[in-house]
Amino acid sequence: MPPEFHLFSNGPRPVAPFSHAVETDGWVILTGQMPTDPSAPDAALPSGIVAQTNRVMDNLALILGELDLDLSHVVQCRCYLTEFKRDYAAFNEAYQKYFPVDRRPARTTIGVTALAVDALVEIDCIARRT
């Protein structure tokens, strides 16, 4: 089957030309999400790494929900932090609340120099339909 490209009207407004998710053969690849509010895309970003991480995770959950999936289907995450040294511990505290201890996806966390919309964090993920 050819890939399916998903862009959801109630999802976060894209900050670049991309789909919210692409699905092929039961695999669902979600574009990195920013800490923007889907209901107020021009509002200021939440303040601090914890609030931004929560918003990003909620945005990922929203996109998964549009696909009749949830965070339990996530098998891998890539996380990008602009202030890695400063924010890594607090980021982990916020992030870990979204996954049970025995069902944490594989993960890579990368320090970067900048992100779109001056975000502190961006996360993309891969999910699998079961």
Rank of each mutant, 00 (worst) to 15 (best):
A51Q: 00
W27C: 02
A16Y: 11
I49P: 05
S39R: 15
R55V: 11
V28Y: 11
G48V: 12
Q52P: 05
V15T: 13
S19Q: 12
R13E: 00
D25I: 06
T53V: 14
P35W: 06
P35K: 01
A44L: 15
L30I: 15
A44R: 13
W27K: 06
G26C: 15
P12V: 13
P46V: 07
A16P: 01
T53P: 10
V15Q: 07
M34P: 04
D37Y: 15
P14V: 05
S19H: 11
H20V: 09
S47H: 05
H20R: 04
V28Q: 10
G26P: 15
H20C: 04
H20A: 10
E23F: 13
V28G: 12
V56E: 10
L30R: 13
D42N: 04
P14Q: 03
R13D: 03
P38D: 01
A16L: 05
V56W: 10
M34Q: 01
V22Q: 03
V22I: 13
Q52E: 04
V50P: 02
A40R: 12
F18N: 11
G48A: 08
A43N: 02
I29K: 08
L45T: 00
L45I: 08
A40C: 09
Q52S: 08
F18Y: 08
G26K: 14
P38F: 04
Q33I: 09
V28E: 01
P41M: 03
P41K: 04
G48C: 11
T36K: 03
A44H: 03
A43T: 02
A21N: 01
P12S: 15
P17K: 12
R55N: 14
A51G: 00
V28C: 14
A43L: 01
V15D: 04
S47W: 04
I29C: 07
P12W: 14
A21L: 07
I49M: 02
L45P: 02
D37K: 09
G32Y: 12
S39Y: 15
R13S: 00
A21I: 12
L45Y: 02
P38W: 04
N54E: 10
P41F: 02
A44E: 15
I49H: 08
P35G: 01
E23M: 09
A40K: 04
V15L: 13
P12R: 13
W27P: 00
V15C: 09
V56T: 09
A21V: 06
P41A: 03
V22K: 05
A21M: 08
V50T: 15
P14S: 03
P38C: 02
V15H: 08
L30P: 14
A44Q: 10
D42K: 06
G32M: 10
Q33S: 14
P38N: 01
P35Q: 05
D25C: 11
P17E: 00
A21S: 05
F18T: 13
